[in-house]
Simulated scan of single mutants.
Amino acid sequence: MTAPWGDYRLTRFPEDPRDQMRAWDASDEYLLRHLEGGTGEVGPVDLEKSQVTVVGDRWGALVTALAGRTAGLTQITDSYLAHEATRANLARAEVPAGAVALLNTQDAPPERIDVLLVRVPKSLGLLEDQLCRLAPRLHAGSVVVGTGMVKEIHTSTLKLFERIVGPTRTSLAEKKARLIFATPEPAAQPVANPWPLVYTLGPEAGAGPAEGLTVTNHGGVFCADRLDIGTRFLLAHLPMWRGEGRVVDLGCGNGVVGTALAKGSPEVDVVFTDESYQAVASARATYRANAAHRDGLAEFVVGDGLASLPEGSVDAVINNPPFHAHQSTTDATAWRMFSQARRALRRDGELWVIGNRHLGYHLKLRRLFGNCELVANDAKFVVLRAVKTR
């Protein structure tokens, strides 16, 4: 990536030489050019005297370029993978350890923010949650700049900045990227944060253990205000275990699947894992609202899928893999999750997967496990089961 201060070699995480997707885009470069010399819209920013907070920096491109150029620099992200990529990119740029404070979206934000830089996320809920949390840390002289590709910035995006931060306008587009300028108007009464959302599952969850669950969704978690149809279909065919065992809800989201499993399988240990800090916080809240009496039988892990679990340490994995990475459709995440599951499973352990019919997950599972059983299907979804036989 070329920035005003030099060129940077950046990678995503996990690093894969076959991965053709870059760790930055034109919106990152546009923002960095603006910070150095202005864009014709707003003049340059005095970084050396500023406490700078960067939100949503996808792979650490922004903080890597800004490290050492501010009075203080903080990155806030919802992504464990983004944190790991940032650490690697900072090390590659020979930035001293500790030069950048790495926080997640559940951490308390910095007390003072002179410059707030926002890489616009895909989720409006996550943007709303973070702006509500950060706005009280701004002051009348704070500079707030958002950035994103034109296709990522909508009227609803600008309305959030306007409502929570202050008067908002956009820059001209360059290389299909655009900047957002918001002028803070510190309010005596900050905008109330509507997140997390809490609701109760009704008959749509089926007659099994999911019905009646109290669900918590922090901003940015998929399908925040309702049960999505894929999870609903999976719950209708969710296996229950008798006796003891260790089962992983991989890519747990709000934890509905793992919590339903825990209610229907009283002696089973359930591991909830996701790369999203917001998701794992949601899963923890969902579980404790419905199964607090079995707290010792649950574990909550923010991480790279099952990478932190020992080989051969679990009896089953339940997985609804994502097939989008930001604006791209890819099966790389699903393939990585399936491979991690096979490593983590004990012999005769089971991987249960739900996915859209057209994704062809059965082919990948047969290639990895040597077998794949169709458990259930409808016009849109399939539930598949693969067994680790060796």
Rank of each mutant, 00 (worst) to 15 (best):
P96A: 04
P14T: 15
D228R: 14
V221Y: 00
R284K: 15
L238Y: 05
A177N: 08
P196V: 10
G264R: 04
R347I: 10
R347V: 14
W59T: 01
I180W: 03
V115F: 02
G303D: 01
D249R: 01
L235H: 00
A91C: 06
K176D: 13
V52N: 00
L81K: 04
A93H: 07
I318V: 15
Y277Q: 01
N290H: 10
G360P: 03
L374C: 04
S308W: 00
Y277E: 04
E350G: 02
P266T: 04
F300G: 02
G255N: 09
H362K: 15
V42Y: 04
L124W: 02
L124C: 05
L62M: 14
A210Y: 02
P17L: 12
V256C: 02
A379Q: 15
F13C: 01
A262V: 04
D378V: 03
R226T: 12
V120N: 14
G264I: 08
G312I: 06
V165T: 11
G243T: 09
W59R: 00
Q106L: 09
T39D: 15
L234W: 00
E311Q: 15
R92Y: 07
M21Q: 14
R169H: 15
P321T: 12
R133Q: 12
C132Y: 04
G125D: 11
V144S: 07
D348P: 00
C252T: 13
A177L: 06
P17D: 13
P239K: 13
V45A: 05
S313Y: 00
L160A: 08
V52Y: 00
L32H: 08
S142G: 09
I164Q: 10
T105R: 03
A283I: 00
K159E: 15
L201S: 05
E94Q: 13
F323R: 05
L103E: 13
T259Y: 03
Y199S: 05
P167W: 08
E350Q: 15
S156V: 07
D269W: 12
V165E: 11
T53P: 02
A187T: 11
V268Q: 13
G303A: 04
A101H: 05
E299A: 09
H326Y: 14
A108V: 09
W241N: 05
P184L: 07
Y287T: 00
D274L: 01
R18C: 07
L374H: 10
G166Q: 13
V375K: 05
P190Q: 09
R178W: 01
D19S: 04
R288F: 10
L116H: 09
G349F: 08
A386V: 04
R163N: 14
P184Q: 11
A88C: 04
K380E: 12
D19K: 12
L47Q: 06
T74K: 03
P44H: 14
A379L: 06
A26F: 06
L238W: 07
T231M: 01
G360C: 08
P203C: 07
G251P: 06
G305H: 08
G56F: 01
T168D: 10
S79M: 09
T39K: 11
L90M: 12
